[in-house]
Simulated scan of single mutants.
Amino acid sequence: MKSFEEELRKDLHQFLLSMNEVDERMPECPDVEDKWEEITRAYLPDGIREFQGYPSVSLGWMMYLGMAVAKMWDTEWEIYSKVENLYAYMRDKRGYDAMDEYIREEVLLLQGDDYTALEKLAGECASRVYNALMHQRYEPGTKEAFNGYVACLHQLYLMGAAIQLKRMGYHMTQMN
């Protein structure tokens, strides 16, 4: 599974790099990364339920969550780091189906072309990851299929955070 997740990471990173959405060097933001497990544990029941009918939504919403957590880290982390269930906090604002809109409008404060461009970008990333997952030919309902799905969510979360950190002016360069 590690090699599949590493392939996902490389593919998404190269794709986003080609669009100038991330830096060559991926960011290190332990506060945001540390929230991954908690958010995923809360997200999985909804994400798995939606995957059958709406795989791109099930995957893409995790990219939005990564972006939202990065934005929260930059603005009011003293408050948001103490929220018991950040995923439920965001989901419950408008419901699962409109969580992307809530994050783009109320957390990331996007409008117009920026709002639409992010919707397209998240959709493209989710489609890439879904395609990669389907090419693994995991048997549905197996441990391997579950682990593959979680690997996809993990990379989308991390890439979402990387995109948002760059958009907020955090540029990752190696120090000499």
Rank of each mutant, 00 (worst) to 15 (best):
Q164T: 01
E76A: 14
Y80D: 00
D92S: 09
N20T: 04
R91G: 08
G160Q: 01
M134H: 08
I163K: 02
R49M: 15
T40S: 15
F146E: 08
K93G: 12
Y170F: 13
T75G: 05
H135E: 13
S3E: 14
K35I: 01
R167Q: 10
R94Q: 14
V69H: 10
I79W: 15
L59T: 02
D23G: 11
R167H: 07
Y43D: 02
C29M: 11
Y43N: 03
L109T: 08
H171Q: 03
G47N: 06
M175A: 15
E139R: 10
L86E: 04
A151S: 13
D92W: 07
E78S: 14
E105C: 09
H135Y: 11
H13I: 00
W73M: 09
W61H: 06
Y89M: 07
Q155Y: 08
E24I: 01
D114I: 01
K120T: 04
Y115V: 00
K120V: 04
I163G: 09
D46C: 11
N176H: 14
L156I: 08
L59D: 05
E38R: 10
L165W: 04
V69S: 06
M168A: 13
S18Y: 04
L133I: 00
Y102A: 02
C152Q: 03
V83E: 10
Y130C: 09
D74S: 15
G160L: 07
Y170N: 04
W77G: 00
A117Q: 13
Y157R: 03
K93H: 11
I48H: 11
R167W: 11
Q174E: 13
E101R: 12
R49C: 12
E6K: 15
E78G: 12
G160T: 03
L110P: 09
L133K: 09
A161H: 04
L108W: 09
A162Y: 04
E124C: 12
E84T: 01
S3H: 13
Y157A: 00
S58N: 06
E21K: 10
M1I: 11
V32T: 07
A132C: 11
L108S: 01
Y87A: 07
N176Q: 12
M175G: 08
A132F: 09
A151W: 03
E76L: 14
L17A: 09
D11F: 15
E84A: 10
E50L: 12
N20G: 09
E124H: 08
G66Y: 07
L121S: 08
L153P: 07
K2G: 14
